[in-house]
């Protein structure tokens, strides 16, 4: 397999040549079990990177290694380097809370808190010490960014759980944007949405990719092909560890995969 990880995507902006996030020879262990083996890749800024691959090959684990969410699980261990703007994020002097503020996350299922729409978006800024006139502005801006403002502006005090699933997921994206992150991790953000809501979220992702580095885990090949400029295809080794089979521009991965396993997966023979 060729070392193609540092190639910029085809339609990249100039700044995309610098890696926003990167991994160098990363291994990840759950107790004695090695879930990730020797992963190295660069995530470009202002672009969408899709992580694809069969179930259980470590896609979510890889994603959660970027914002250190894995360490909420007992007895996990990371070796190798994970870099944000070239600086290691697992160093001893890294403040995890600050790191997670810089790297936002959207989860598989829409999960607003049982509070008002406004409070859901305001929770991040408030925690980071913003006061009310500021917070109000951030909430409005974030909801606008998440393409939800027009639908909810007259009912900001209404309960978030009364929104549709698609709207709830947009709200969760607004909640993540409100802490003003630099990169956004999305863990199968559309897997519980209907096609129309999926389309809305995808459009939003393309929009956000003009400003943020976005990493999305997806089971949906078409989705990866539609939204991402780079694709990382993961596979499971015989010892069940997740490895990076191929990482390249999405257009190349889907038309001319170099790795046999990638080809089999994309054409539907495995997975």
């Amino acid at each position: 397999m060729e070392e193609s990880a540092t190639q910029p995507p085809t339609a990249a902006t100039p700044s995309a040549t610098a890696a926003k996030l990167a991994m160098r020879h990363v291994d990840f262990h759950y107790g004695p079990f090695r879930a990730l083996k020797d992963i190295s890749l660069d995530i470009h800024d202002r672009a969408i990177t899709a992580i694809i691959g069969p179930s259980g090959c470590g896609k979510s684990t890889l994603l959660r290694t970027f914002n250190r969410m894995n360490e909420l699980i007992p007895r996990t261990r990371v070796t190798g380097d994970v870099l944000l703007d070239g600086t290691g994020i697992y160093g001893p002097d890294v403040d995890v809370a600050v790191l997670r503020k810089r790297i936002g996350m959207v989860f598989q299922r829409p999960n607003p808190f049982p509070a008002s729409i406004y409070d859901n978006v305001a929770i991040g800024p408030r925690r980071h010490g913003r006061k009310e006139p500021d917070v109000q502005e951030i909430v409005e801006r974030s909801l606008c960014r998440a393409a939800l403002w027009d639908e909810v502006k007259d009912g900001l005090k209404g309960p978030a759980l009364a929104l549709s699933a698609g709207q709830q997921q947009l709200l969760c994206i607004a909640r993540a944007l409100a802490v003003e992150p630099e990169a956004i991790l999305m863990d199968e953000p559309c897997s519980s949405l209907d096609p129309a809501a999926t389309l809305e979220v995808e459009e939003l992702m393309l929009e956000l990719a003009q400003e943020y580095a976005i990493v999305i885990v997806t089971h949906n090949m078409q989705q990866a092909a539609r939204v991402s400029s780079m694709s990382a295809c993961m596979m499971m080794d015989p010892d069940r560890a997740g490895v990076l089979a191929e990482y390249d521009a999405t257009s190349l991965i889907f038309t001319n995969p170099k790795d046999k396993r990638t080809e089999d997966y994309i054409s539907g023979r495995i997975g």
Binding site: N67, R100, K101, I123
Partner: peptide, 24 residues
């Protein structure tokens, strides 16, 4: 899930507990 969201927004453990776990 609520705890995960709290942490992912850059809250400390105590903030996550105080603002998301306690009210629920």
């Amino acid at each position: 899930m609520y705890r995960d969201v709290g942490f992912s927004l850059g809250a400390t453990k105590w903030q996550t507990i105080a603002t998301t776990v306690v009210p629920s």
